[in-house]
Design a protein around this nucleic acid. Structure first.
Lengths: 217, 217
DNA sequence: GTCTATATAGCGATAGAC
DNA sequence: GTCTATCGCTATATAGAC
């Protein structure tokens, strides 16, 4: 209470070290959880990849599970990010869906490890995502569904169940992250290159628009 | 060497016990690996679910990994099973793809745990499936691709890269097994009922045929 | 062939020096 | 705030009785 700035000056430099190390730990954890799953990853591995002593990891994250939840939180922020902004009534369904699909494919290409952790969580029955799935995501789907229903009512789209349409779009776009090794194998490639993502964007867009977007004119 | 049937009679009943127990172990292991992953499943859990002492599991399967590989082998047999028979030149693409998609959705509904174990394996980079992916599956895709290319050459289909078409079909059909909890959550259901699978079959078929099958007449 | 009892290793987590 | 050394537990795997 004596001097205001004291605590600030004492805390801020330490806070920067903290931020940097927490960031390193989260990044290492994301890589390893994506590659090996929760139980398949050891805290020693995470510490080694982050180039920190193991006990230091426990200083910032009291348990392995808390660390995992922190990783998951960042992923949900990504997931709830930009793509949805395209689905608004003012755009036609063709433009909206085209851009939405492009955004989702970009996400799969730029954050494949995030996608894999999310997929792992769903495969296991999503024990840490019940609130997210039943409240946050469900509300999002209902909002997007209203927009789609509106286009249907205007005769711009053929009738379609938004839940299934969105599930299929997510499945197709995320498969290029989650199952990349299978797609690479059947393509005879070692890894997915830009060409694959360009073609993926086209084919997914084509399937969705051909099936549900009413021809103009 | 004294009597021929002796060994037969001595061995066959034992062999039947063996088959029954091995079957119980494999079934329990499949359930648990699907729910918890390889590292998340303990041999004690498997033994308990199979209602056998733990050491008995080790009698039939020398290591946990060998047991996992046995489970995986059964899944690959399922995966390489019936669906592909629909993709033959003599049928038109509409009939072929419609039945192929129906078969894949049926597989997802009837064997969701198998699908989840396979998905887990791909997520981890498929360390146990390199031969399957690069040889067996790749050959299958090349055979199916030839049929599709043939339909394109005949003007029955619009040009399409078979690798992407198949990847998208697999993604959409398997998502109803792998990510069932997400689809249930956004639908406001506790579990996926028959209605969901019927709609799924329709929407996936519609997307594929609308985009790539040339209109008859 | 079957099962109990146990060896051994590796992991999550912590105590305590600095 | 940071790190070394270590604890306690759990899980795979086995030895050996029946």
């Amino acid at each position: 209470m004596v001097e205001g700035p004291v605590t600030d000056e004492a805390v801020r430099p330490a806070g920067q070290v903290r931020r940097a190390r927490v960031g390193r730990i989260l990044k290492a954890a994301e890589r390893l959880f994506a590659a090996n799953g929760f139980e398949g990853t050891t805290t020693a591995d995470i510490a080694a990849l982050a180039k920190l002593p193991k006990a230091n990891v426990y200083y910032y994250f009291p348990t392995k599970e808390k660390l995992y939840l922190a990783v998951l939180d960042r992923i949900l922020d990504l997931w709830l990010g930009e793509a949805d902004i395209w689905i608004v009534p003012s755009r036609g369904p063709r433009e909206a869906l085209t851009n939405y699909i492009r955004a989702k494919i970009d996400l799969a290409r730029e954050h494949p490890e995030a996608s894999r952790i999310y997929a792992s969580e769903l495969l296991r029955g999503a024990p840490h995502l019940t609130g997210y799935l039943h409240i946050t995501l469900r509300n999002r789907v209902m909002v997007l569904g209203k927009v789609i229903d509106g286009w249907v009512a205007q005769g711009l789209m053929h009738p379609v169940d938004p839940v299934h349409l969105l599930s299929c779009i997510w499945a197709m776009t995320q498969t290029y992250a989650d199952f990349a090794v299978q797609i690479a194998a059947i393509s005879g490639k070692m890894t997915l290159d830009d060409d694959v993502f360009v073609r993926a964007t086209h084919i997914v867009t084509r399937m969705v628009t051909a099936a549900f977007v009413v021809e103009a004119g």
